[in-house]
Nucleic acid binder design. Structure first.
Length: 420
RNA sequence: GUAGGCGUAGCUCAGCUGGCCAGAGCCCUUGACUGUGGCUCAAGGUGUCGCGGGUUCAACUCCCGUCGCCUACACCA
């Protein structure tokens, strides 16, 4: 029997893996330019970190955490923020410095039904910053995310921002909502009736049209914000604009994880399916405390790598092998192999035949690899310590001394890269 | 957890209301091309028609079940 991959997981064939790595490499470069430091945290984590951190009533915790069989409290991490706080507190980092900017790139796991842009194992580029409540940081963090997306070339994205207000505002807002919606309760969808009990804020971004209209009728926009929070949000809008990032204010943007307070934002792309968020984040000024630490303000975001890849479209088959060494006859296989090694030792990506292919077959393979040059090792030339060097783009070829081959190819490739 | 769609060669798929329908294109290999890829032409190979039952003289085609995938909902990146 032939096994199939586990539901909700994805295999990355060479072209896709290349695209993945390019994307991650570009992101890393941007993040380092913004002075973030990379951390690598385990995929296994104590589920308590998320129960406490993300919130008991959230879907992630209620039914999306994948447990390790026989290990009651060990799960595959569903997200990175709570985990990073765990790392932060476990190492008492707040006692060593008052400010940290971290990023991570890695797999997250959720036991959801897969669909477009949603996998059970997926990868995120995440950022978490600890130790500043300044609004300029909010703006910088949003700019960072925007920069990574732009660098990756995912096309047009829309940035939505909102503020939930400080914790007091958020709670007040939640109460206000519950109160005002009471008389409409009968018209809410089934889910929203449930939300009313457990997580009222989520009613606000229900996709059901009926619920949407009810919420709009409540006139809740901005009503809950205290003066400082309102000013802060206005400042944020100004700063983001100055940073050259376009955005829209979306009063109905609410994030589904309990830890968010204050600024929340979301990048969406039309190139995605129904799961159109390509990245999202916000402030979580109370999370460090929730997880047993001191009160330390923090902000972060996560970008979905697979969603970025969807937005990027079909991966191109880029060529990484520069040279193919072909043998014209069985007798030439041994010299061909030696020349191959010589080129590889000189740092040139080189391939040769391993299947006793005909010369035609070897050329076809070379073509498929997308090589720029074929070195033809033939009986005639080898007698003079020469080989034929063929340029696959121009079809031109010349006889070259084996001793000069490496330099010749190196010169060609640098000439070419200079032109580009 | 829920709803809909789909499962036919390695890939993309065609096969109408059951009976010469087991096929096409791509890919791969070989040859035309005398040591040289791309273009063209020719030849070659692969399928338990997802799996298990049922109806029927006869099922890829109908029915039931099952598994898998996809899309969407809830929710999230």
């Amino acid at each position: 029997m032939i096994y199939t991959g586990v539901k909700g997981t994805q295999d990355y064939h060479p072209a896709l893996a290349r695209q993945f790595n390019n994307l991650v490499g570009d992101a890393r470069a941007v993040l380092e330019r913004y002075a973030y430091q990379e951390i690598i945290l385990p995929v296994l984590e104590d589920e308590g970190v998320f129960r406490k951190g993300v919130g008991e009533a959230t879907d992630i915790v209620e039914r999306q955490m994948l447990k390790i069989e026989g290990k009651d409290n060990i799960i595959l991490r569903p997200e990175g923020t709570a985990q990073t706080v765990r790392f932060f507190l476990e190492n008492s980092l707040h006692k060593q410095s008052d400010f940290y900017k971290f990023f991570y790139i890695g797999s997250m796991f959720r036991g959801e039904r897969p669909q477009r842009g949603r996998l059970r194992q997926f990868n995120q580029i995440g950022v978490e910053v600890f130790g500043s409540h300044r609004v300029s940081l909010d703006a910088e963090v949003i700019k960072t995310a925007s920069q990574i997306l732009a660098q990756a070339g995912v096309g047009e994205v829309e940035l939505k921002i909102n503020t939930l207000g400080c914790l007091r505002d958020k709670e007040a807002f939640s109460r206000l909502l519950v109160e005002r919606i009471r008389e409409h309760a009968g018209h809410l969808c089934e889910d929203c009736r449930r939300r009313r009990e457990k997580n009222p804020l989520r009613i606000i971004d229900c996709k059901n049209d009926k619920c949407k209209n009810i919420v709009k009728g409540l006139n809740l926009e901005g009503a809950h914000l205290c003066a400082p929070c309102k000013d802060r949000f206005d400042d944020l809008g100004r700063l983001i604009k100055e940073a050259g990032v376009a955005f829209v204010y979306d009063p109905y943007l609410v994030r589904g994880l309990d830890y968010y307070t204050g600024t929340v934002f979301e990048f969406t792309s039309q190139r995605l399916g129904a799961q159109d968020a390509i990245g999202a984040g916000g402030r979580y000024d109370t999370l460090v405390e929730r997880l047993g630490g001191p009160s330390i303000p923090a902000i972060g975001f996560a970008l979905g790598i697979e969603r970025m890849l969807i937005a990027l479209g079909e991966p191109k088959n880029e060529t990484v092998v520069a040279v193919y060494v072909a043998a014209t006859s069985p007798a030439m296989q041994s010299p061909a192999f030696m020349i191959t090694q010589q080129l590889r030792d000189a740092g040139i990506n080189t391939e040769t035949d391993h299947c006793e292919k005909s010369l035609k077959g070897q050329f076809r393979y070379a073509q498929r690899l997308g090589v720029r040059y074929v070195v033809l090792v033939g009986d005639e030339e080898i007698k003079e310590n020469c080989v034929m060097l063929k340029n696959m783009q121009t079809s031109g070829q010349e006889k070259v001394k084996i001793d000069d081959l490496t330099n010749k190819i190196k010169n060609f490739t640098t000439e070419n890269s200079e032109k580009n």
